[in-house]
């Protein structure tokens, strides 16, 4: 068996360690505190399409490997931690591909008093610090890129129009897709590969409210969420929000997810009441972002497959 060997070269492992050290330095210079939160917890997320790994016999009950450290980190923020960052593993079932591994390294951070525009600026500073070459920042709205690359307004286009356009561009698709599915597939296939070429990092903001996840809605245009994504060399690197701080709205989104899960024959997820209590006590106004470190390291080292930056991908783990 030659599978005992790492898929990343020893040179890459050394470069990876250096990048991690520089990331820690970046946050230390900004007085953002490094924290660690549990990988294994009682609750997971209600996200409709996220499949968590379940762990039996955790504290005399069921537990889950985290899909992201978001809830625990927000509990720290509510407890008065101030701005924090974490480098940790996250786990997602069934995600395997050139840019997916079921276990991956996430860099997540929250800055108190920032909105998502200020955080975009800081994400850019981090990437610029890590890059050998000076980078350029470009910022485009979700609506802009759809208009530019596909000549449609994603907020006005109808499902039949999307179905027709997607059929022309993407071939055979499953039936019964929703508007957001078509938009996501078109974005992935037709727009994403063109974003953030060479030394330009592209920030997309102004996502539809239906794709808000844990972001606030924009008070000035409530059809959009205060959410951004970061693309570099055609790869999605990070996802950030002006964080939702309203406990009632958060509970409503959890319950809607669970209702949807029930309708679609998926298990309903128990709601993390620790997290909701923390929101009730008060999450300070903040912006947060989760960045896929393996993907970032892959791009910084000009490699093309995640297995080249991981010691042991899932099939050798």
């Amino acid at each position: 068996m030659s599978n005992w060997k790492p898929t990343a070269s020893i040179e890459t492992m050394k470069a990876r360690a250096k990048i991690l050290a520089r990331v820690r330095e970046f946050f230390s210079e900004r007085n953002i505190l490094e924290v660690e939160t549990p990988l294994l917890s009682r609750h997971s997320v209600t996200d409709r399409y996220m499949k968590s790994f379940e762990v039996k016999d955790f504290m005399r009950g069921e537990g889950f490997l985290q899909t992201s450290p978001e809830y625990a980190m927000k509990r720290l923020l509510a407890a008065g931690s101030g701005s924090i960052f974490q480098i940790c593993k996250a786990f997602r079932q069934d995600e395997v591909g050139a840019r997916h591994n079921p276990e991956f390294t996430m860099l997540e951070w929250y800055v108190e008093g920032f909105d998502h525009y200020q955080l975009m600026e800081q994400v850019f500073q981090l990437l610029n610090t890590l890059s050998h070459k000076p980078l350029k920042l470009s910022r485009l709205s979700y609506q802009d890129v759809f208009e530019q690359y596909l000549k449609i307004n994603p907020f006005k286009v109808t499902v039949p129009q999307l179905a027709e356009l997607s059929g022309d561009l993407l071939g055979d698709l499953p039936e019964d897709l929703e508007s957001d599915d078509y938009l996501a597939l078109l974005f992935e296939d037709q727009i994403e590969p063109k974003l953030g070429q060479a030394n330009e990092v592209c920030f997309i903001y102004g996502y539809p409210a239906s794709q808000a996840a844990l972001a606030k809605l924009d008070p000035e245009s409530p059809q959009t969420a205060c959410r951004f994504e970061v693309y570099w060399r055609g790869v999605e690197l990070a996802n950030g929000f002006s964080e939702l701080t309203c406990v009632a709205e958060q509970r409503r989104r959890f319950e809607m997810d669970n209702a949807w899960r029930k309708e679609n024959g998926l298990p309903q997820m128990s709601i993390d009441e620790h997290f909701l209590t923390a929101l009730e006590v008060g999450l300070p106004e903040c912006a947060g972002v989760a960045l896929g470190l393996d993907r970032l390291i892959m791009i910084l080292l000009e490699l093309s497959d995640l297995t080249e930056v991981a010691a042991f991908p899932a099939d050798r783990a």
């Binding site: 996200d47 050139a98 499953p174 957001d180 974005f187 794709q211």
Partner: peptide, 14 residues
């Protein structure tokens, strides 16, 4: 065959 999970939505095999 390519696994994709565009946006925060559902995953697909292209």
């Amino acid at each position: 065959n390519q696994f994709v999970r565009p946006g925060k939505g559902q995953a697909f095999s292209k």
